[in-house]
């Protein structure tokens, strides 16, 4: 089947607006958007710039807008879209460097501010083995931990479009993953960060971010953070109890 791709060409150094270019690609039922882009680059136009990585949607390099939705190019089959014309675009809301390549610097900086590492008062077991965690507690963070930081969610958020300093769903899901981790005890510090003026209170439950390539309910995670901050504020946060419960169930 022949499919038409409409791709914006843009260089932030010289261009003011994007010019659109049309490519025609012959696709099979197995061709993904990334395959099609590779075909374009190999056979038609080697100047097209896009990022690519693990080709399995697990590293998040190839997030882009496909027919108006943010998707991973490597896990989206062309024929699965049921369209003969496909409009591609860079992830909205991020500064475009060139063509389909956007600047992730501020995105990763926000992620780094979320303390993306375990902070805990629970001593390591004396035998040097693992800290115990029940399967139930492990499952609470399993999905959020699969986030590959492709930026599809943050890029889909209208609040992030208008206010670039909003942390965005991806960074907040990262915070959520550690807040929910039964081994982590820095919940107060984490909630202070996500509860700041550029944090969860900027979320207005639009839920564009919940359309995630890894099926992570980012929007719901942000609401869970809001509830936790509120309960903590009015003195109902059960932070100490949470740790004790884990030890009891194990």
């Amino acid at each position: 089947m022949k499919v038409t791709f409409r791709v914006p060409r843009f260089d932030a150094a010289t261009d003011f607006t994007a010019k659109y270019q049309i490519y025609h690609v012959e696709v099979t039922p197995y061709t993904t958007i990334l395959d099609a882009l590779n075909i374009i680059k190999e056979e038609q136009d080697s100047t097209l710039a896009f990022r690519r990585g693990s080709q399995s949607g697990i590293d998040g390099s190839c997030g882009m807008m496909v027919n108006g939705r943010n998707r991973l190019a490597s896990t989206t089959r062309v024929m699965g879209l049921n369209a003969t014309e496909i409009a591609l675009g860079p992830l909205p809301g991020f500064p475009v460097i060139r063509d389909l390549v956007v600047d992730f610097d501020s995105f990763f900086a926000k992620d780094a501010v979320m303390l993306p590492y375990l902070v805990t008062d629970i001593a390591k077991p004396e035998d040097g083995k693992e800290r115990l965690q029940s399967p139930k507690d492990a499952n609470r963070i399993a999905l959020a931990a699969t986030c590959n930081q492709c930026g599809c969610c943050t890029s889909a958020c209208p609040v992030h479009w208008s206010n670039g300093e909003y942390y965005g769903p991806s960074a907040l899901t990262r915070a959520y993953r550690f807040v929910e981790d039964s081994r982590d005890t820095a919940i107060k510090a984490r909630l202070e960060i996500v509860g700041s003026e550029t944090g969860v209170w900027r979320c207005h439950t639009i839920f564009n971010c919940s359309e995630c390539p890894k099926s992570i309910p980012n929007g719901e995670n942000i609401q869970a953070l809001k509830r936790k901050i509120m309960l903590n504020k009015i003195g109902l946060g059960r932070i100490e109890v949470k740790v004790a419960r884990t030890e009891a169930t194990v």
Partner: peptide
């Protein structure tokens, strides 16, 4: 990069 972490009255 600079990232704002500005405590505010957001929660209240």
């Amino acid at each position: 990069q600079k990232v704002k972490v500005e405590p505010g009255a957001g929660t209240l």
